[in-house]
């Protein structure tokens, strides 16, 4: 069972990841992301992270991926435009990826032999207790952080007051063809 979930999760995650970074159409990319997130949730189950898997689906998939899709919905259809490919940029991306890959793989493959997973998976009670004892400080702080993030997002994204709008209108280039 575990192996099966592992395989499914792996394929979904990797496939979704590939789609997410390759797709020209951003919707497809968003779908790819969603697939990756789902696959990851699948991957959490065999290693005793059922609770986290559920939270991943609820929050990550349900909130983050959905908000990304919202934004894509609210924006002009970039994908309709044919964009010129920048070979140099592609090359640079590949090189950076390869350079980063070397130490990461080296580290991953050098990880010591795993202990047997004989112990029981952590229970929700355990997680809950940890959140309120050992990790109570980050727990409280993250709620502050989320509040601040919301307020910040509102401040950044709201409309400018009337006078500044006029000033802005002069500086900003005229609306032209949007590009992706």
């Amino acid at each position: 069972m575990n192996d099966f979930l592992f395989i499914v999760g792996l394929l979904t995650a990797l496939g979704g990841g590939l789609l997410a970074v390759i797709a020209r159409n951003l919707f497809h990319a968003a779908i790819g992301l969603a697939a990756t997130l789902a696959g990851t949730a699948c991957l959490f189950v065999p290693i005793g992270g059922e609770f986290v898997a559920v939270i991943q689906v609820l929050v990550y998939l349900g909130a983050v991926a959905v908000s990304i899709v919202f934004i894509l919905m609210l924006s002009p259809p970039f994908y309709l435009k044919r964009v010129h490919r920048n070979a140099l940029k592609l090359l640079g991306a590949v090189i950076v990826t390869l350079v980063v890959a070397v130490p990461l793989f080296a580290a991953a493959l050098a990880a010591g032999p795993a202990k047997g997973s004989t112990a029981a998976a952590p229970t929700v009670q355990q997680i809950g207790r940890a959140l309120l004892t050992e990790f109570v400080f980050p727990f409280e702080i993250i709620s502050v952080l989320l509040t601040v993030a919301i307020i910040g997002a509102i401040v950044i994204a709201r409309d400018l007051p009337e006078d500044e709008q006029a000033v802005l209108a002069e500086k900003v280039p005229a609306v032209k063809e949007v590009d992706a």
Binding site: K89, G92, A93, V96, V99, V100, V102, P103, L104, A106, A107, A110
Partner: peptide, 20 residues
């Protein structure tokens, strides 16, 4: 921004290699 990020990635990777 992407160039900056790219450079920092490469540097961190190099440092990691040295540490490893």
């Amino acid at each position: 921004v992407q160039q900056y990020v790219g450079v920092s990635f490469v540097v961190v990777a190099a440092v990691l290699l040295i540490i490893l």
